[in-house]
Amino acid sequence: MVATAANTSTIHDHGDNVVSLRDQGADEVSERLLASSARLSRNAMTEIDWDQPMDPAKYGCSPEWSSLYGTDYWDEMTEAQRVSLTRHEFASIMNIGIWFEMILQEMVIRDQYLGDYHTPEFQFALTEIADECRHSIMFAKASQKMVGKSYHPSKFVGRLGKVFMRTARAEVAYSGILVAEEILDVFQRGCMRDEQVLPFIRTVNEIHVLEESRHMKFAREEVRDSMKGVGWARRQWSAFVIAVGAAFIFTSMIRPQAYSDAGLDAKRAVAARRENEHFKSMVRSSCGHLMGFLDEVGLLTKPAARVYRKVNML
């Protein structure tokens, strides 16, 4: 597969995890990513001491990344309530991450089912699936340790997810993968070096951000390849479906039950989050790179942009 690359600069991400924009297609990118994976992959099962007691003063995510930070409700909380809130919020985010990683795995396996097994593209696709399995276990253990429970999307969104993973193809599938990974990446980059956050959660974030950077490069290359020669009607439809999927994923990240489990009034918390200009601003600024890519490949159409603006991703 061959993808165009108008820019000949180089993207540097996490040391030697580098993919040049001179690369010509999924196989060339995948070969570099396979080498990067062999050098840089990490194992949370051995790297994290899962039995280490948690400091009661440490947050689950940076306070500034709490969905209620900057609201009157936040100002009313005790410090202990704020810590509990961020732990339940981030557990919810990780659990929704597990849900989408399971969708991702099925889509990638289906896409590569009768692929060219000898190619780097196929081999990195399987590497990505293996990474996602490890990430899901890591998130599950982190959630177990931090709050001792699981969160799931609503039944309606869960059913939509099943439809998406069984029907999405080409640019819709890989853009959906990219959007979900970028959304989770936004939250984790904001928290992974904050010493206010639990040390094992910072390590979880570091591992996931590092390894997902490879997955996002792979997805971007697959999207570029899929968009070659795509006509106006298909581009419009694909862009809209991707945007609607992104909206459902993003709005599902922090479940109302997480607020209840943190001892808050869930209805009031959801209303406060909906009106929280600080949180909206944090999300918009962090999604800039994703929106730039979608625009580059022709998937940020006017109808799609309206959807992204409605959920404050644009």
Rank of each mutant, 00 (worst) to 15 (best):
D51C: 03
A271L: 14
H88G: 03
M165G: 01
P56F: 14
N43F: 15
E132L: 09
W65P: 01
M45C: 01
N95R: 01
A44R: 00
R87D: 07
A258R: 02
V108D: 05
R235M: 10
T119V: 07
G190K: 03
I201Y: 06
D225F: 11
T86P: 12
L264G: 03
K280D: 09
L34D: 02
I96K: 07
A140S: 15
Y308K: 00
I96F: 14
G60P: 04
S30Q: 03
I207M: 15
W99K: 01
E296M: 07
I137F: 12
V147M: 14
R166T: 04
E221R: 00
V297G: 03
M227R: 11
V283N: 02
Y151E: 05
R255G: 00
S92I: 08
V2I: 13
A80C: 05
H152Q: 06
R224C: 10
D75F: 06
R110V: 08
N43S: 13
F218L: 11
Q123S: 05
E277N: 02
S260V: 02
E275V: 01
A5R: 05
K162S: 09
M146I: 14
W65S: 08
R284E: 11
I183Y: 09
E212Q: 08
Y59P: 01
G60Q: 06
A91N: 10
Q112F: 12
R235T: 15
T203C: 08
E106S: 11
F293P: 02
M291S: 04
E277C: 02
R309D: 11
M313D: 02
A271C: 08
N17G: 08
P256R: 04
A57G: 07
I48C: 10
M216K: 13
T78W: 14
T4H: 06
S226F: 12
D49T: 02
E101D: 13
M1T: 03
I249M: 13
G190W: 11
E206K: 06
S62R: 13
D111A: 14
A271G: 06
Q196R: 15
L294G: 03
L198S: 03
D116P: 01
Q257W: 05
Q105L: 10
K302H: 00
S154E: 09
F124Y: 15
V204D: 07
D225Q: 13
A44I: 04
F248V: 06
M138H: 04
C191G: 11
D23L: 12
S226I: 02
M165C: 06
Q123R: 15
W232C: 01
E277K: 12
M1G: 15
Q196K: 10
N205D: 14
D131E: 15
G161N: 13
V186N: 05
F200Q: 10
H12G: 01
K310F: 14
H88I: 05
M94H: 04
G298C: 09
Y117M: 12
L198W: 03
I103P: 00
H118K: 08
V19E: 10
L300R: 07
A219K: 04
E79P: 00
E275P: 00
Q236C: 07
L126D: 05
H289L: 12
D185P: 00
I242H: 05
R87V: 12
E171W: 03
L178S: 04
W74H: 08
Q81W: 05
I96A: 12
E28T: 02
A57L: 14
M54Y: 03
F122R: 00
D23Y: 09
D194C: 12
F156N: 01
G292D: 14
S150K: 12
